[in-house]
Amino acid sequence: MSQAEAAGPVHGERARTAPRAVSPLWSLGLFRSELLITFRRWRTLALLAVLAAVPVLVGIAVKIETSDGGTVGGGGGEGPAFISQITNNGLFLVFTSLAATLPFFLPMAVGVVAGDSVAGEAGAGTLRYLLVAPAGRTRLLLAKLTAVLTFCLAATLTVAMAALVTGALLFPTGEVTLLSGTTVSFGEGLLRALAIAAAVALSLLGLAALGVFVSTLTNSGIAAMAATVGLLITVQIVNSIPQLDGVHPFLFPNYWLSFADLLRDPVYWDDLLKNLGLQALYTAVFGSAAWARFNNRDVTA
């Protein structure tokens, strides 16, 4: 804040003719430019393409395996969640794909984008020019964070949409049987799928904030990405060791699969709310840590 206040009057007039009163729009402009930077990168587009390919591959594999009338995995309930229902209802490809990508693919993509957000600029030597503009460090960081969060949503929706299109093309669609055995209309099924996509996107917030914090620690984009993805893997491993179950409720991926609770009837909110609370906590802690670090940082590059 102090940056913005101190720098505003001096540089504001030089950079823009508009008075300071329009600063909300100015923030939006900053956010928009961050968004464009993020989504115009080939790297980001390649990540989204890989994510979109997952449901297509799963769909085609299931189609080929069941083309002789058999069931997936012999009906033994193996493989990613919901995979046995795909042949009956293409909508389940959305749930299967999200369940398959959530443990690793999606967070990895988020880790790459988040890790690169500040450190990438520092590494390329563009961070100081950004700071010369009268945006202020806090606002710049907020814009960066918002862009990363938008990427979380975009990545999840990419998987969900690719899965929906593939599922609708390859498999029949219609009424959806929920996990509890009750049947709902296809429209409500779609709504639940949308809610699930939102829940998955929100599940990634904690990691996104963590990634941005790591990104403020270093000048090397690659190091920040590697550290974020490495942290993700470490936490996933810790989360799978039953002897450490005392710390599991505090690890950000612990409630990730709770999105499946949206498919119960009635919806089982306990774990979903725990997940949201945990993600909000991670976002608050690491977001403010990133803010503290970024505002105190000696930016030389």
């Binding site: 940056q3 101190a6 700071l131 505002n295 105190n296 940082r297 930016v299």
Partner: peptide, 9 residues
């Protein structure tokens, strides 16, 4: 602008 102003903060 590039260095933080007040170290105490």
């Amino acid at each position: 602008q590039i260095q933080p102003r007040n170290p105490r903060r």
